[in-house]
Amino acid sequence: MAGGVSRRIFLKSLGTSAVTAAALGADTVSQGLAQANAERAQGPGAVAVAFTVNGEKRTLMVEPRVTLLEALRGNLGLTGAKEACDRATCGACTVLLNDTPVYACSMLAIEAQGAAITTIEGLARDGKLTALQQAMVEQDGLQCGFCSPGMVMVLTALLRKNPHPTEAEVRRAIAGNLCRCGSYPRIVAATLAASGQKPVTQLNVISLHDHALA
């Protein structure tokens, strides 16, 4: 293959029209064509992006600069994943990309081409909460709830991989998810409860009148 400059010209011409076979050997041309078609630049206008969301095939038209989070929330109306920082610093936008938790704010929708995405809306089926979601409610693993979708996604992935995590493993799993209300202790408790472990409560109500020291 030729050097950078001539190759760029080659690709540019391919991008808009056909290239003459005479310019290159026949094998090279068919390989080159296949590759160049695959390597045709898309955008900057809206382009078709197809992926699976919560088991459903979806195709949408978005500019390459649209993030996965913007596409999910804006184009698909899936507002469960939240935009809280838009800079990969808080985890409120977490979704599963091929079962791996990612920050939807920090990848482009076009990068998810062909991928299987699970959002918070895809967990509870027919209104029935998962064991983790149920535990989050019962153990009060939330306050304002804005971080909850991201927390649930990252912990769902943890429990799939590691059904009986230790407290330290749970804490580490949510290291990339911030909660300004400070619900971490109850989120950890909920995760332990969901994995069949006894959650710890550190709250004791005592009567001032009965207490020996009071």
Binding site: L78, T79, K82, I120, E121, Q133, V137, L142, G145, V152
Partner: peptide
């Protein structure tokens, strides 16, 4: 008593 809106919040249904 668990929060009334807990299920909506942990399932992404709660509209902010």
């Amino acid at each position: 008593t668990p929060r009334v809106e807990g299920p909506a919040k942990v399932s992404g249904r709660a509209k902010y």
